[in-house]
């Protein structure tokens, strides 16, 4: 089986002289559930913004041999790189089915758009089953719970045919049960996707991360398994060091 991977080299983002991401190298393989952590202001979301076309960056970010930097958002999305946002941004006025159908349709022929949907596409059906939203298919997204909205977001990434998934704090504000379901969902998804999760929740991280990259002040501080990263004294300093906030604190939202 071919293994996809995302390769970021020397990524640098600056806003008016402030360097938010400073020369980050990052390689994520398919099947690896990678977590991206770091204190506030470490550059996690900015890194995701840069790779998905929302923030201008220098360096290189390649997926499947395609350079992503410098392309427009919708071109990057079509190249197979999808993302979610911290605040769930599903289309509230549309139903679950309509949301997924739109996500599945960016490659549809223009003329076919002028017709109503005749049948539910297979990929949409599959995504509803994967995310457990089948019974909510005709509900407007506005009526979903917070957790269900996040799952719908992930479902939209799946039908969008994205191979690289960036998830920005997917479990923030979720109940314990919803976190567990989300973790299981991510495990199912990582088998055939490159998954990068930006997350603050240490409990969630310990339970589901295959590997962890720690960012601090725009640079990669450490990388490895949860145990390796946890044992790193520099990581301990920013999370556990005297006078700083520990992971226990970080887990509470």
């Amino acid at each position: 089986m071919r293994q996809d991977y995302l390769e970021i080299r020397g990524l640098r983002v600056s806003f008016d002289g402030f360097v938010a991401v400073d020369g980050v190298d990052l390689t994520v393989l398919q099947g690896d559930l990678r977590f991206l952590i770091g204190p506030n202001g470490a550059g996690k979301t900015t890194l995701v913004d840069a790779v998905t076309g929302l923030a201008a960056a220098s360096g290189s970010a390649k997926f499947d041999g395609t350079e992503l930097l410098g392309q427009k958002e919708h071109q990057i999305a079509r190249a197979g790189v999808g993302r979610t946002f911290q605040t769930a941004s599903v289309f509230e006025q549309l139903t679950v089915l309509q949301n997924l159908d739109i996500a599945a349709g960016s490659q549809r022929r223009r003329r076919s758009l002028l017709r109503a949907r005749a049948t539910v596409p297979d990929s949409v059906q599959l995504a509803m089953e994967t995310t457990g939203l089948t019974t909510l298919r005709d509900r407007p997204a506005a009526e979903l719970s917070h957790g269900q909205k996040q799952w719908l977001e992930i479902g939209m990434l799946l039908v969008q045919n994205a191979t690289v998934l960036f998830l920005d704090e997917p479990v923030a504000g979720m109940s314990a049960e919803e976190r567990e379901q989300t973790g299981e969902l991510l495990r199912r998804v990582r088998r055939d996707h490159v998954v990068v999760v930006v997350e603050h929740d240490m409990e969630f991280l310990r339970a589901y991360a295959d590997s962890v990259t720690v960012l601090a002040a725009g640079k990669v501080l450490a990388e490895g398994t949860y145990a390796q990263v946890q044992a790193d004294p520099r990581v301990q300093e920013i999370y556990l060091g005297p006078g700083s906030r520990g992971p226990g604190h970080q887990a509470v939202h």
């Binding site: 919708h74 079509r78 993302r83 941004s89 996500a103 960016s106 969008q160």
Partner: peptide, 12 residues
Amino acid sequence: DGEERVRFLGYD
């Protein structure tokens, strides 16, 4: 309702 989101789904 979400122009930005539509862009990230691969549409212009």
